[in-house]
């Protein structure tokens, strides 16, 4: 019975993240449009875009190799596996022990690695510019993220996300400076990793500042759809990660009943909406920064992560 429930929760989680991810992107776009006094496309627009892209034929560059065609599915699968392991509405994920937080970070690293390679496959200048900047951002974002993971692991005594989330939901946590620093660091990393303003602009094209869009410039049709879903999944993953670690309220405990899971789902939807609105507000309030300022921005996250960890070594209650 427990196994069946666990599998159900795991399967539900995989479907929920997949189904909600484009909606989150649509919500962010809608709120951004409203904040700039535009009407904006409906929240459901990304679903329609994806469906249309799926049905279109693929126009493949003449010298694209098999790598270019395999990469979208690999990127999607790696991101999906990572997203499936971050608790969203319930803690009792059947396969949560498959990969801990470090492995989840590395899975996203794999997705980035293959995306950058795919960007270089056709051999265009734009692909190169995107890949080169993406790996630079990754080179700063990944250590910052890992230091944040260190902070969490030191507080909760585990790198296993379900254990961390359960600990964070318990009264043993209290208010800690180190956790505050970890939160800020994680938010900065999330913004950079998801190619949001001020690091990258997801709505831009033909600009020398673009990173993510430059890498996927040669993609079309179903390949582009897979990459877009992967990007949406990644955004949802980060929101879910921040929610489950720092705001773990309302999540269904392992082995609880149907009602608790429904409540958990409702709470997750609320958190997701709050995350989307906050992101859109932040993005409208700030300007895109020069690409060479990004290391400073991410360096701040790196230092915050390190400081948070060091504080914990000074005193375990900070």
């Amino acid at each position: 019975m427990e196994l069946i429930l666990g599998l159900l929760v795991q399967g539900g989680q995989m479907l929920v993240v997949l189904l909600l991810a484009p909606g989150l992107v649509g919500l962010v776009r809608k709120v951004r449009a409203r904040l700039t006094r535009r009407r904006g496309a409906p929240v459901l627009q990304p679903y329609r875009d994806l469906l249309r892209l799926m049905k279109k034929e693929v126009v493949l560059a003449e010298n694209a190799s098999w790598m270019f065609r395999v990469a979208p599915y690999t990127i999607f699968a790696a991101t999906w596996v990572a997203a499936a392991l971050v608790p969203t509405f319930a803690l009792g994920l059947q396969f949560s022990w498959t990969a801990d937080l470090i492995a989840i970070v590395a899975l996203l690293g794999s997705a980035r690695f293959f995306l950058a390679l795919a960007g270089m496959d056709v051999g265009t200048a734009f692909g190169g510019i995107g890949a080169s900047r993406e790996v630079m951002i990754g080179a700063f974002a990944e250590p910052a993220m890992l230091l944040t993971v260190f902070t969490l692991a030191l507080v909760a005594g585990s790198t296993q996300l379900s254990v961390v989330a359960a600990f964070m939901a318990s009264p043993a946590v209290g208010l800690r400076v180190s956790l505050g620093m970890a939160l800020v660091a994680l938010v900065i990393v999330a913004i950079a990793e998801n190619a949001r303003i001020p690091v990258d602009n997801p709505a831009t094209h033909l600009e020398l500042t673009m990173v993510h869009e430059a890498m996927v410039l040669e993609y079309s049709g179903r390949h582009l759809a897979m990459i877009e879903i992967a990007a949406a999944l990644k955004l949802l993953l980060y929101v879910a990660l921040i929610a489950c670690v720092f705001f773990p309220w309302g999540m269904a405990a392992a082995g609880s009943g149907v009602l608790a899971h429904l409540l958990g789902l409702a709470a997750f939807l609320l958190k997701l909406a709050a995350g989307g609105v906050l992101l859109a507000t932040f993005e409208t309030a700030i300007a895109k920064m020069r690409v060479f300022r990004v290391p400073d921005f991410l360096g701040a996250a790196l230092m915050l992560g390190l400081l948070g960890t060091l504080l914990l070594f000074v005193s375990r209650s900070l």
């Binding site: 999906w80 596996v81 396969f95 801990d100 005594g157 585990s158 254990v163």
Partner: peptide
């Protein structure tokens, strides 16, 4: 097991299956 675990086999299986 409470502190950390990682299964490369399952990660590979999930990625292959998903892709």
């Amino acid at each position: 097991a409470g502190q950390s675990s990682y299964s490369g086999l399952l990660v590979l299986a999930f990625i292959t299956f998903g892709a």
